[in-house]
């Protein structure tokens, strides 16, 4: 599970399932519950939401791929302090990206009125595809050399 190509394939499958869940079920919830501004159709909102979601998912997946590749390099084993830095930076970059993704949706639909719960849902969904996805995948699927680097492994 921690070696290539299995860890790559499992993370793709997990990312795909996550995208289906958030891009279909959560999108349906939002479709019937958000109050959009005048002139904005629900289909347009869902389309934009899915595109932003897909971009976040691709970034999360790429971050995982990079970590899997980096973690399996010969040089990484003898520089675990460097690996810790790489993982942490990647995590926070994705945390920032999730915020940017939520902000992008708000910016595009600036006339819409979202409830606090909907704000939370947007952030939760974007988090799930970025830093949370990255954390979970690297926690379970990291190459052996770096498997104790992600938070929560010890």
């Amino acid at each position: 599970m921690r070696s290539a190509p299995l860890n790559y394939l499992i993370s793709v499958a997990f990312g795909g399932l996550l995208w289906l869940g958030t891009g279909y079920w959560v999108a349906n919830y939002l479709k019937f519950n958000v109050s959009l501004g005048v002139g904005t159709t629900v289909d347009y909102f869902v389309g934009v939401y899915r595109i932003v979601l897909a971009m976040a998912a691709v970034i999360g997946l790429l971050a995982c791929f990079f970590w899997f590749y980096y973690g399996s390099q010969e040089g990484t084993a003898s520089n675990l302090e460097g690996a810790k830095r790489v993982w942490t930076i990647s995590f926070f970059v994705q945390l920032a990206l999730s915020i940017v993704a939520v902000a992008t949706i708000f910016a595009i639909f600036e006339n819409a009125i979202f409830t606090a719960a909907q704000y939370a849902v947007f952030f939760a969904v974007m988090s799930a595809h970025t830093y949370l996805f990255y954390w979970l995948c690297t926690l379970v699927l990291s190459p052996r050399t770096v498997k104790y680097i992600p938070w929560g492994m010890r």
Binding site: Q73, E74, G75, T76, A77, S78, N79, R144, T145
Partner: peptide
Amino acid sequence: QMTFGAFINELNG
């Protein structure tokens, strides 16, 4: 000409 990192990878295995 493998490196010391390769040795650590063997240790991990």
